[in-house]
Every structure is written in structure tokens, then in C-alpha cells.
Simulated assay, not measured.
Amino acid sequence: MTFDPGQHGWKPERNPENPGYTGLVGPLWSRQEAEGQWAYAFLAEPKHLNARNLVHGGMLMTFADQFMGRTVYHAVDRQACVTVGLNSQFVAPAREGDLVEGRGRIVRRTRSLVFIQGSLTVAGAEVMVCDGIWKILGQ
């Protein structure tokens, strides 16, 4: 599968000149779907696979941490945040060539914490559900 992100409105999630950790697991993509709502994605490559040739659960967790953190970041007006807790349930496998998409939904926000639920899908079918707590730094 050849993935042309521009064809579907996806943009690189990080600066390709300074990719940081995302450079090891990415590229990761994002697009704004509605006011204040973002979607994220990665194309499953051989480097993302486990010994069974399925996308490694650690990659799905890494992706969830990334896209849920970005969702929180946008929800708190781009304030710095860190992950406090992240829970997941693997529902179905993702395979090489799959475009894995992630979307988060803010459940609750306090002065210093944000509670979020997330879903990872392939072609509209869930592969993982997750929830987490993020701390707004400086609060």
C-alpha cells in the first residue's frame, strides 16, 4: 500500500528536521477533522511488527500516548502536559500496510488533570481502546 498523506489531508505530526522519538516510530500524521477535533495516524511498516508479523502492542501503546497527549495539548490551549496513566485493551490485530488511526475524546478536565478516552481503528474497525490521565504542567 502506498500512502499519500496529502491526498487525504494528513500532515506530518512532527518537524521532519527534528523528529525526536517520533522519528524512531513514525512518521505519524495528523489532520483536523472538525473545530477542536483531531485525528492521528501511522502506516504500519515492518519496523512496527512483532514476531507474529502483527503490529506490536508496544507500538500501539506508543501511538496512543502520542495522539492522546496531542489531543489533550489542543484541549488545554497548548499548555505543556505529561502522561500520568495510560490503560489499554487490545481488541483486534493491526497488520503491515494498515493505516492505524487514533482519535481521543476528553471526558473530564480539572484545574490540573485531563481524563481522556481513545480508540485506534483500521478501516473503521477498532483494534485498541484506551483511557488515560494527563497532568497539565504548572498547575
Results as ranks from 00 to 15, higher is better:
residue 2 T to A: 09
residue 3 F to L: 13
residue 5 P to H: 08
residue 5 P to A: 08
residue 7 Q to W: 00
residue 9 G to A: 01
residue 9 G to E: 06
residue 11 K to H: 14
residue 12 P to W: 08
residue 14 R to I: 15
residue 16 P to L: 02
residue 18 N to R: 09
residue 18 N to T: 13
residue 20 G to T: 06
residue 20 G to V: 03
residue 24 L to E: 14
residue 33 E to Y: 02
residue 37 Q to A: 07
residue 39 A to C: 11
residue 44 A to E: 11
residue 48 H to Q: 12
residue 50 N to P: 00
residue 50 N to L: 01
residue 52 R to T: 10
residue 53 N to M: 04
residue 53 N to K: 07
residue 56 H to Q: 06
residue 62 T to C: 02
residue 64 A to T: 14
residue 64 A to F: 05
residue 68 M to A: 13
residue 69 G to I: 01
residue 71 T to V: 00
residue 72 V to A: 10
residue 73 Y to M: 05
residue 74 H to F: 14
residue 74 H to Q: 15
residue 79 Q to L: 11
residue 80 A to W: 09
residue 85 G to A: 13
residue 85 G to W: 00
residue 87 N to S: 12
residue 91 V to I: 14
residue 91 V to R: 13
residue 92 A to S: 15
residue 93 P to E: 07
residue 93 P to N: 05
residue 96 E to G: 08
residue 98 D to M: 00
residue 100 V to H: 07
residue 101 E to I: 03
residue 101 E to A: 00
residue 102 G to A: 06
residue 105 R to I: 11
residue 108 R to L: 09
residue 112 S to L: 04
residue 112 S to K: 12
residue 123 A to I: 10
residue 124 G to M: 01
residue 124 G to D: 10
residue 125 A to W: 00
residue 129 V to F: 01
residue 131 D to A: 03
residue 132 G to Q: 07
residue 136 I to E: 11
residue 136 I to G: 08
residue 137 L to F: 05
